[in-house]
Every structure is written in C-alpha cells, then in structure tokens.
Amino acid sequence: MPSVRRTVAAVSVLAAAGSTAAAGHAEVYAPPAPAPALSAPALDARYQATARDITRALATAERVGDKGRKRALSALLGPGRRFLSFDPRGGGRAVEVLGDLKHADRIAVVVPGADNSLANYDSPKFVGGGGRALYRHVHATAPGARVAVIAWLGYDSPSTLSTDALTSGRAENGARSLERLLTGVHRVNGRARFALLCHSYGSVVCGKAARRLAPLPVDEIALFGSPGTTLRHVSDLGTPARVWAGRAKGDWVRYVPNVRFAGLGFGADPASPGFGALRFDAGTGPHSGYLRPGSLALRNLALIALGRDTEVTHA
C-alpha cells in the first residue's frame, strides 16, 4: 500500500528529528502524590490533593527555569479551577472539572487528539481551552441545565510528528485510563448520563474504550475530525450509546488514507455513510476548530452533550 508506506516514511523522518531535539532534556518533575480514590465524600479532598501536586510542579519549574511550564502551571492554579488528576512528567496530564460534578444531570467528557500537552492545555485549539468553550456554550444554550464538562488530558497524547500517531498503542492505554475515570466519576454521581466528545486521535481512544464503558450510562459518543477507530462499522464499537460522526470541510484529516495494514492506520472513516454513525454537520472550519466559539461544530457538539439530539443539524 504505497500511501501507507509514504506516510510512515515521512513521519519516521520527522519523529527522528523531534526525538533528537528532545534528547538530553532531564526529567526533573516528580510523580503526583497518592490521592483519595474518587467518591462523592472524597471529591473536595481530591481537588485539594491535585492542587498541591500542581503547586509542587510549579515550584520545580521555577527552580529549574522552565518558563513555558511555569506559565502553564500558574494558569492551572487560577481561581476556581479544579482538577481530578495531574501529572507533570513528560508532556503532562491534567483532568479538569468545569461545573458541579456531584449534582450534574449530564457530564460531557472532551477526549483530545494528538499534540495535547500541559504547555498548550489552555489554548483554544486544545483540550483545556476547548473544554471551557464547550462549557460556556452549553450553559448559554441551556442556562438552567445541570451539566458539567471534564477536559480530559488523561493519557499520553502522541505527537503528530511520530509513528505513535499512526498506531493504536497510545489509544489502548488511553482507553484504560478513560474507563478508570468514568468508573470513578460514576461513583461520585450515580445518576448523571455521560457524553464522550472525541477529537482526532481521541476518537481512536473512544473507539477502544466504547465496549469497556458499555456498563456505564454513556448515551452519546461523538467522533469528529477522526482518522478512524480501527473498526469497520459502528456496531463493532459494542456500545448502546448513540454514535455521531462529523468532519469539517476544512479539516486536513480527510486526506488521511482510511486503511489499516500491519497495525498501521485506523481503517474506516467514521464520517462516511458506510460506517453507520449519525452524521452531524461540522461546518467548514479547520482540524483544530471544532470547539471554536461561534462555530457550527461547537453548536452541534453542545447539543449532543445536552442530549438534545432532535436539534442537531445533520450532515
């Protein structure tokens, strides 16, 4: 398959260059301290423990002169921000809660794709900024709704310039982490319904997690900007949830070959009619613009998060 071989060759060269640039960077950040297990009584203690982890990481960034990480961590400690988990090692992990997790009727989880890290977490193009845009739009659309949003950088997001972005290894690990998160959040709030909003490589994570999450009250899964899920049809996800798919007209991912060969690639296009998902109109924006304020994609994803399926604009 020439297209796969060309893609692998190009990515391998870029990955080698990236790893050379990163060589010699010492790992100076300590792992997070043990935190209380997720439960309703322990939720505030969990928030406090995670804030202490972020504070320790900020002190390390100041000590070693890591200016980029210092700016990012200072923002995470801003007033009113709450995190279920945090890990500063490597590219970093952070799982932020927007809204009242204990009393929400619906909880939307934003599952990001490649190139997400602590350094760009709050950018509008990445999971923290996108999660806030979703939260604001949901509450502008339905001011009285009890909806929380989780911005989930809970796995090692691959670099686009690496072969990891062509295989499902990171997604397998991410699926296990996502299952642990939702199981814990379900202990915190046993009545809330979940919506998974899965962007780009994050749709591979959700594809791997869907069957694992079938016992939990996940009733909406949206795959957008997706290169594939490694599965051929929506029925292969093994989920009772409604599965949506959308691709913006300006998204470069439409040029990614929808093949799977020798563990490379992700197979069928979820936004194609043959996959069998409900197709929502994702507008005309770029790959990084699905959660951009004012976009048609954000409007429809907010309606999916709310469970207001009849109001979603179909492709």
Rank of each mutant, 00 (worst) to 15 (best):
A271P: 10
T167H: 07
Y47L: 04
R292L: 10
A10H: 11
L182N: 01
R211N: 13
P2D: 13
A61H: 06
R193N: 07
L178F: 02
V13G: 13
G169I: 03
F83W: 15
A33V: 06
A59R: 14
A21P: 06
F126E: 10
G267Y: 10
P88F: 06
R136I: 00
T7M: 15
K208I: 00
G228A: 05
R292H: 11
G207Q: 12
A26V: 14
A10D: 03
P273C: 09
V28S: 12
T183F: 12
A22G: 04
A192Y: 07
E220P: 06
L43I: 03
L84N: 07
V127G: 09
T313C: 00
N116S: 12
R232L: 13
G99A: 10
R71N: 14
T20E: 14
L166G: 02
A57V: 09
F83Q: 08
F266N: 08
T284A: 11
P36S: 05
G289D: 09
E96S: 13
F126S: 00
S162K: 02
Y121G: 08
T60Q: 11
T239W: 12
S12K: 15
A302T: 05
A277C: 03
V111C: 02
G238W: 00
R247H: 12
V205P: 04
P41T: 04
A305P: 06
F194N: 03
A305L: 03
S12W: 05
L223S: 04
S272Q: 10
L197W: 03
E62S: 14
R89N: 03
D251C: 05
F83H: 15
H139M: 05
L264K: 11
A57I: 11
A37F: 01
D122T: 13
F280G: 01
L14I: 10
R279H: 10
Y201E: 08
R176A: 11
P32C: 02
K102G: 12
A21G: 04
